[in-house]
């Protein structure tokens, strides 16, 4: 286990260096000059040159990259071209929102997904099974920006049950929970559908498995059988989905944050890409990639703990 973690950690560092290089180069190749965005439509050629110089953009790209990398190694993520504020601060103020949103939507996804999956499996081919399978598939078929707007229209504007947008109250307050509900549903629907499908099929397998039959034959009450034996096994696919879906979820926050006016890393990222704010793009992409890899590492560890048969050679 320890060697697994150590090895993965080194892989993570290599991966991050690779990603930082890719992103750095792609931003510099991309048309669009940060200086002309800061200068605005009125800037003169000399204004632009002065801005470029103050940002260090007139040095060769490779020199800039090496500077950047050595900065990161010293824990310095640089300063935003746009606001001139520390990138680390910019991320730290937004990251909790994104994390809350991601966790809340995972919770929504797990609750809906596991419940639906298990009930469908136990009552295989019942009306519940058929309709939940259909709904699950429909769930991953809805463009989530569209779903978000529809939810706002229904629950916030028409019924006035929940606030339209924003996420500024702490998540443990009633206000915070109310603010999280719609975005979490919007973002969690896709994952819920996937979890439902996965847990249904594993549950089916588990139910048909020999040891369950034996347990039933021994007269353990059916409900007990399901909850005790089956649930633990059904956890495995759920964990897989969380790992695999986490990247998609982080990607999804980009759109969800946009629709619900949530001040998160996703929105920071699109704004930065549009403004060619290189240091911010770099840092946010690295953060997202590192998170994704970390979550998958944790998933692997949990895997190994739950199911001793899995080994990592």
């Amino acid at each position: 286990m320890v060697s697994l973690i150590v090895r993965r950690f080194f892989q993570l560092i290599l991966l991050l260096i690779g990603i930082s290089f890719l992103v750095f180069m792609s931003m510099h190749i991309a048309p669009g000059d940060p200086a002309s965005i800061i200068g605005g439509p009125t800037a003169s050629a000399s204004d632009l040159e002065a801005i470029r110089e103050s940002l260090g953009l007139n040095k060769p790209v490779l020199v800039q990259y090496v500077d950047y990398l050595s900065g990161i190694l010293q824990g310095d993520l640089g300063y935003s071209f746009q606001t001139n504020q520390s990138v680390a601060d910019a991320i730290m103020t937004r990251f909790p929102n994104t994390l809350n949103l991601a966790i809340a939507s995972m919770i929504v996804a797990i609750i809906i997904g596991v419940t639906a999956g298990i009930i469908s499996a136990v009552k295989q081919n019942s009306w519940f099974d058929v309709s939940s399978t259909t709904i699950a598939l429909a769930g991953i078929s809805i463009p989530n920006f569209w779903l978000g707007t529809m939810l706002i229209l229904l629950f916030s504007v028409t019924l006035q049950w929940l606030p339209v947008g924003g996420l500024n109250a702490p998540f443990y307050t009633v206000e915070g929970i109310k603010q999280l509900i719609l975005p979490a549903i919007t973002l969690g629907t896709g994952s819920a559908a996937m979890i439902a499908r996965m847990s249904r099929s594993t549950m089916l397998e588990v139910i048909r498995a020999d040891y369950i039959r034996t347990a039933k034959a021994k007269g353990v009450r059916q409900r007990g059988v399901i909850w005790i034996h089956a649930l633990r096994n059904a956890m495995i696919p759920v964990i897989t989905v969380i790992g695999v879906n986490f990247g998609a979820l982080l990607g999804g926050t980009i759109i969800t944050e946009q629709v619900f006016a949530i001040n998160g890393v996703g929105r920071l990222m699109i704004d930065a890409i549009a403004a060619r704010d290189f240091p911010v793009v770099q840092a946010t992409v690295l953060l997202v990639a590192a998170l994704f890899v970390l979550v998958n590492l944790i998933v692997d560890i949990i895997y190994a703990l739950i199911d001793p048969r899995i080994s990592y050679d």
Partner: peptide, 15 residues
């Protein structure tokens, strides 16, 4: 794989 797909697409389109 470590890039969320939509982000990857955004970077490619920016380029």
């Amino acid at each position: 794989f470590a890039f969320p797909g939509i982000l990857l697409a955004m970077l490619i389109i920016a380029m």
